[in-house]
Simulated scan of single mutants.
Amino acid sequence: MRSRSCSRTGCSARATSTLTYAYADSTAVLGPLGLRAEPGTYDLCATHSSSLSVPRGWDVIRLPAAETDAGPSSDDLLALAQAVRVAGLGAETELPVEPTVGRRKGHLAVVADG
């Protein structure tokens, strides 16, 4: 597996985190490095991750780095969705503990709306 470089122009440092924007919620989500580069995401090195700034009025959600390199758990997508909901609504909303089983695509599960 080849390591990826920082997406910032002129930076060739090794990427350590992935940045994703939720434009509708005016939220930037910075989390552990994704399994692969995806359109609409940006890989950042440790320096650029720690100095991330967003437009005024936007929120930044910083997800903790994984302690082990065991890969994503089945709760990763639900945790990200919950974090965006909390940032957007300003209050915690409950998600089902056991998601409805749906079709799997890659490492993310497609969950039917209940």
Rank of each mutant, 00 (worst) to 15 (best):
L80P: 01
R2F: 11
G57R: 00
L77W: 05
R104C: 08
A65F: 12
G102P: 06
H48W: 05
V110G: 07
R8K: 14
A87K: 00
T47L: 10
D59H: 05
G71R: 03
A66W: 08
S49K: 03
P32L: 02
A13F: 05
V29L: 10
V86C: 02
P55F: 03
A24F: 00
T27P: 01
S12N: 14
L77K: 06
L35Y: 13
T18S: 11
G106T: 08
A79D: 13
D113K: 12
A70R: 12
L52F: 08
G71Q: 05
A46C: 06
A13C: 09
L77Y: 04
R62M: 01
P55T: 04
V110A: 12
V97I: 10
A83K: 03
R85N: 11
P72A: 13
W58C: 01
A66D: 12
R104T: 15
G71N: 04
C45F: 06
A112M: 09
E94Q: 15
G88N: 10
G88L: 00
A46G: 06
A46F: 05
L52E: 05
Y23V: 12
A15L: 07
Y23P: 03
A28T: 01
A91S: 10
L89M: 12
G57D: 00
R104L: 11
G114H: 14
S17Q: 11
L77D: 14
G114T: 11
P55E: 07
D59N: 08
G106R: 12
D75R: 15
H48L: 08
D113M: 08
A83G: 02
T93W: 09
L108N: 13
R103H: 14
T41F: 04
P64M: 02
S74Y: 10
R8F: 09
L33K: 08
D69P: 01
T20W: 01
L95H: 11
E92C: 08
A15V: 07
A79L: 13
P96L: 05
P64S: 08
P64F: 03
D69W: 05
G57H: 02
E94P: 08
A83N: 02
S50K: 11
V111F: 06
D69V: 10
T100G: 09
L77E: 11
T18A: 04
A91C: 10
L80Y: 04
P72G: 07
S51R: 13
R103Y: 12
E98F: 07
V84A: 01
T93D: 08
P99D: 06
Y42N: 03
D69H: 09
A112N: 07
G114I: 08
D113E: 10
E94N: 11
S3E: 14
L19N: 00
A24I: 00
V111P: 04
S53K: 14
S17E: 04
D75S: 15
P64E: 06
A112F: 06
R103K: 13
A87F: 03
G114E: 13
G34Y: 13
